[in-house]
Nucleic acid binder design. Structure first.
Lengths: 188, 188
DNA sequence: CTCATTATTTAACATTTGTAAAAGGAATTC
DNA sequence: GAATTCCTTTTACAAATGTTAAATAATGAG
């Protein structure tokens, strides 16, 4: 659990008492490659911290698999809407590499907010960061050609290109596999 | 200020003591159509509540004006990244109708978080809502054709179509004016 | 009201992206 | 290590979107 604590402390320090309260609602789990940690249609009941491995969030658009995001080591993942409002999610969280995770139970966490203001503050900041990132993501796809989006990704997240298969990257960029393959050939 | 308080209370109730603390850091202002409330390159120092009127956030991409979002009556607007981290924003907030606003000073608000946990909780929820909305926005533009994006907008935000000029809507959807005009002609 | 300006539509053409199918590579299983 | 399956590239063609320019339409200023 050390990696999680370090990660959280880098965002907002919490008391050691809060730290143990938080750890008491965490559990470790392992997910094998290609399995859905959180399937489509289920209520998301946990936040997940990726100790190692790699996850993605995806959904189906007219039976086509669309990747919404990738989640690497040392990041927190959640289906926010589903977690906050206990409603079924149209999106799944899937491991695309064998992964070791820490699950933080949502309901328990939200209860801790009442007794531990520093935990509430910490997660306020966690989601503020996520919000800022998602606004940046909007900009990166809003008025850009497929080629621009790919070059942007190459620059900002080269590790995505290295570790993830083309079919996932393509829908993440909002284009088809064929189109991405073409762009790649073009750039070389 | 009544509208603001009602709006905030609908998200999370706060004590009357917190309410007056909050009001003490607010000020009202009026912005004329076509003027930048917050220009590009400036640090965003306030959150704004739209009492009436209409705002948009925009930025320049290769000298082309791109609308990131529209903000109607009864909503809170901020350039989050700039506000949270006191850094200059590449994006501007502009009035596209004469508007009456309430400004909430950022620095003062963040100070209130320390003394008023209910205010911190309130704004935690404000930004959680904004986060969920922005994830939904990503989905609405990620793997959809221009026509799908426009039809989606027609369905979910008909008021955008009614009150806002085509040129702003086009870049908001990530397409050119000509393309949007064509789609409109097509749908009729 | 008229003129000037700005916004929207239309047209013709260029470019990008999608679709479907086939071929080649890479990885996995038995 | 052969066979199978999955992934990526390529090709040919279709459809969508961008670009530029011109024609209308709507709006606003004097």
């Amino acid at each position: 659990m050390k990696a999680l604590i370090e990660y959280l402390n880098s965002i907002n320090e919490i008391s050691s008492q809060s730290e143990s309260a938080l750890l008491s609602i965490c559990s470790e789990l392992e997910v094998k490659k290609n399995t859905d940690l959180h399937p489509i249609g289920h209520v998301c009941r946990n936040l997940y911290f990726v100790k190692n491995g790699l996850l993605r969030i995806y959904y189906l658009k007219d039976h086509i698999d669309v990747t919404e995001s990738f989640e690497f080591e040392n990041s927190l993942v959640a289906r926010a809407d589903s977690l906050f409002h206990a409603k079924p999610s149209r999106k799944a969280i899937q491991a695309i590499e064998d992964s070791n995770l820490i699950a933080i139970n949502g309901v328990s966490l939200f209860k801790l907010y009442d007794s531990h203001p520093d935990i509430e503050r910490l997660f306020r900041k966690v989601f503020e960061i996520a919000y800022v990132e998602s606004v940046n993501r909007i900009e990166s796809i809003q008025f850009h050609s497929a080629k621009e989006r790919y070059e942007n990704l190459l620059e900002k997240s080269p590790k995505i290109i290295r570790r993830i298969s083309l079919k996932f990257i393509a829908s993440y960029l909002g284009i088809t596999q064929v189109s991405l393959s073409r762009i790649r050939a073009d750039i070389k």
